[in-house]
């Protein structure tokens, strides 16, 4: 059973995803998805360029803020958070300054 979720990239992170901010996707397969397995999936399926600006090791690059359903992912268990259908996950890059 596929899991439908919404991904959003902003603060400059969208530049790595062909300048598209919102992505509605379906995670394939019947296994359970968590953020830890979502990140490499994004890298392999959505990311257009420069993976090193998005991921570092098995987590996001320092300076990218992650929100799960508008709450800081630190409150949700970070990589261990188990993705539910219709979740909204937002990646905001804070590296651009301003």
């Amino acid at each position: 059973m596929a899991v439908p979720i919404t991904l959003e990239f902003s603060g400059g992170a969208e530049l790595l995803f062909a300048n598209q901010k919102k992505h509605s996707i379906e995670l394939p397969g019947s296994q359970k998805w968590d953020v830890k397995s979502l990140l490499p999936w994004i890298r392999d399926n959505l990311l257009q360029e420069r993976p090193e600006l998005f991921m570092q090791g098995d987590t996001v690059r320092p300076g990218i803020l992650v929100l799960v359903n508008d709450a800081d992912w630190e409150l949700m268990g970070e990589l261990e958070y188990e993705i539910q259908p219709n979740d909204k996950i937002v990646f905001i890059s804070t590296l651009h300054g301003g």
Partner: peptide, 14 residues
């Protein structure tokens, strides 16, 4: 700052 912008729907331009 990013959290504030998000919660207040403050637009910024890239």
């Amino acid at each position: 700052v990013e959290a504030y912008n998000r919660l207040q729907n403050v637009e910024s331009i890239s």
